[in-house]
Amino acid sequence: MTDTPVLPPPLRAWLGLIAALAALAVVVLGVLYAGHSEPGTADMWVAPEVGGVRPPWRDVALATDFLGEPAGAAALAVAAVAGCLLLRCPRAAVLVVVGATLTVGVATLLKPVVGRTIHDGHLSYPSGHTAFVTALALVVALLATNLLGLGGAGGTLLVLATALVAGAAMGWAQVGLGAHYPTDVLGGWCTALAVIPATAWLVDGVADRLSDGVAGAGRRQQR
């Protein structure tokens, strides 16, 4: 699977549309909650009590939250890269590193721009933890789609379902621990949905050009 595109061709149109809608959602939510320091109406409807999780579920939330902290995130990324390389999918390994870095980078840059805060002025929109975990889940789902040979509809469904499960798990932990409002979590989820497909397209484009260059050089040497 060395030369297999990390973004399956049957999914490109669907994920391109989803990425565009996700980017729009990130912008709209950012504008709506810019400079706010209180939960919005949607936040109160979803989770009236931010930070209300209690033992033993608090321990589960803390363990989940750790996966978005530097040490936990690094361990997850290393495991994902190793898995991709074992499956001989170098493009997916590159996407893990570049995609996750860009996703977290975008989320980090958006925080001071939006200026939404929670608890003692901590910048909260969008949720970087949710963005990171969702980004990794998307890469794993794209890899699985390739391995299973799924078509456009099945592959898209698998990608979205995987991203939803991962984002919901981390989002629950972030809201339950009082680190984020529900709409922060949604913003982080959408950030990953916007960044990863675009990054996958770029990774494939660069890899294809490099492969063409190597093939062209080989043909010239044979002459």
Rank of each mutant, 00 (worst) to 15 (best):
L147G: 00
G72I: 12
L24Y: 11
L67Q: 02
P39H: 04
L87W: 13
L76N: 14
V185K: 03
P70V: 01
A63N: 09
G16Q: 03
P70Y: 00
L164G: 00
L109V: 15
T117D: 01
A161P: 01
A166P: 13
A93P: 07
T4S: 10
P126I: 00
L7H: 10
G187L: 05
R116T: 13
V106K: 03
A25K: 00
L87S: 15
G115Y: 01
T183I: 12
V133N: 12
E49F: 07
R209Y: 03
A13Q: 10
V140G: 06
R91Y: 07
M1Y: 11
R209T: 13
R88C: 01
G115T: 07
P5E: 14
T134P: 10
G72A: 12
A25M: 12
A47M: 11
P112H: 03
P8R: 06
M170N: 06
A77V: 12
A23C: 10
G72Q: 12
G178N: 11
W172M: 09
L21F: 13
V159T: 12
A73L: 15
A13L: 13
A34T: 14
V195K: 05
G52P: 09
T134A: 05
P56E: 07
A135C: 09
A179D: 12
P48V: 09
V31N: 06
T103K: 08
V26C: 07
A144Y: 02
L186S: 07
D120H: 14
L11F: 07
R209L: 14
H122K: 09
H36Y: 10
T191C: 12
V113R: 10
G40K: 01
V94G: 10
A19V: 02
L138E: 03
G105Y: 08
G155E: 09
V214A: 15
T130Q: 00
R12E: 06
R88H: 13
T117F: 00
M1P: 14
A217H: 07
R54M: 15
S124H: 03
W45Q: 13
A207I: 04
A107H: 02
A73E: 11
P8M: 02
A79S: 09
W172F: 13
G40H: 01
M44G: 15
A161T: 12
T108R: 11
G205P: 01
L109D: 05
A144Q: 09
L21Q: 06
A107C: 11
A25R: 05
V28Y: 08
D3Q: 12
L164M: 06
S127K: 06
E38R: 14
A173K: 06
R209G: 07
G155W: 03
A131G: 06
L32V: 10
G218K: 15
L142F: 05
A169S: 10
V31K: 10
G51V: 08
L29C: 06
L7E: 08
G167I: 04
G99L: 12
W14K: 13
A166H: 05
G178M: 08
L24C: 11
A207P: 04
D59Q: 14
V165W: 04
F66C: 00
P112A: 04
V53C: 05
T156K: 01
C84V: 01
A207R: 03
G178D: 13
T2H: 11
L123C: 08
T41N: 04
I196R: 00
